[in-house]
């Protein structure tokens, strides 16, 4: 292990790290917005839109991000739609994540017993109020562990960005290995940066999961 090399590569890695985080979290934000919209559409069974949402979820949950990105980045320009690599990464991650988020939120909404809505009605609450004050908080509580797992999954998927020559961590490592052949140093730095990026989220995830389990099973 050569620490001089590590110090030399540090600025390149930090730059890539922030780019990865930036695009990753923009993608996650898109996936949340998309996921909530799609989940609501499916929960309220809005005609036509509901069918489209279902097709969208199935299509994106059953294909790998790498293929989706290749299609967006190399395929679409051929029919006149040009997207930059960064936008493509965020959009691809958002579309993939949206389908996962939608599924998690929808199952949270469906998990709230029907008697809750009925009780609300019996108390004379308006449908909107029932949804906002009774259904949503309960659905949210059951969805949280799944949502956090999705966030971890999406942050991990950012490593695929390197395939569309976005200068992320993976790309930087691959590039440096190819140029100078300091394989060990490059890989160690890669691992450390991914740990910095993901360990906090993962630890929060396990804690939340434990608390939810405690609430549900009491053990």
């Amino acid at each position: 292990m050569n620490f001089g090399v590590i110090a030399e590569y540090m600025p390149l890695y930090t730059e890539a790290f922030f780019l990865t985080i930036k695009i990753g979290w923009i993608g996650i934000a898109i996936s949340f917005v998309l996921g909530i919209a799609v989940a609501f559409i499916m929960h309220f069974k809005i005609p036509v839109l509901s069918a489209i949402s279902k097709a969208y979820i199935e299509l994106f949950r059953n294909t790998p991000l790498l293929i989706q990105l290749f299609f967006l980045y190399f395929g679409l320009p051929k029919i006149g739609i040009n997207i930059s690599a960064e936008v493509c990464g965020a959009l691809g991650l958002g579309l993939l994540g949206g389908s996962y988020m939608a599924e998690t939120i929808r199952s949270g909404l469906d998990a709230v017993p029907k008697s809750q809505t009925e009780s609300g009605k019996a108390l004379g609450m308006k449908p909107l109020l029932i949804f906002k004050d009774i259904i949503l908080p309960q659905a949210f509580a059951t969805s949280v562990p799944g949502l956090l797992a999705n966030i971890i999954f999406l942050l991990k998927e950012t490593s695929v960005f390197s395939a569309i020559s976005l200068m992320d961590l993976m790309f930087t490592a691959k590039d440096l290995i190819g140029l100078y052949y300091n394989t060990t140093e490059c890989l160690v730095m890669l691992v450390i940066f991914y740990i910095i990026m993901l360990l906090p989220v993962s630890l929060i995830g396990s804690r939340v999961e434990k608390r939810v389990r405690y609430k549900m099973f009491g053990a």
């Binding site: 971890i152 991990k156 998927e157 950012t158 490593s159 695929v160 390197s162 993976m170 490592a173 691959k174 290995i177 394989t183 060990t184 890989l187 890669l190 691992v191 991914y194 740990i195 993901l198 360990l199 993962s202």
Partner: peptide, 18 residues
């Protein structure tokens, strides 16, 4: 849980060799 599969792939394919 936290290591992207791509990183693991690189570690085994390029790292183990070296």
């Amino acid at each position: 849980r936290i290591m992207p599969q791509m990183v693991l792939l690189f570690i085994v394919y390029f790292g183990a060799t070296k």
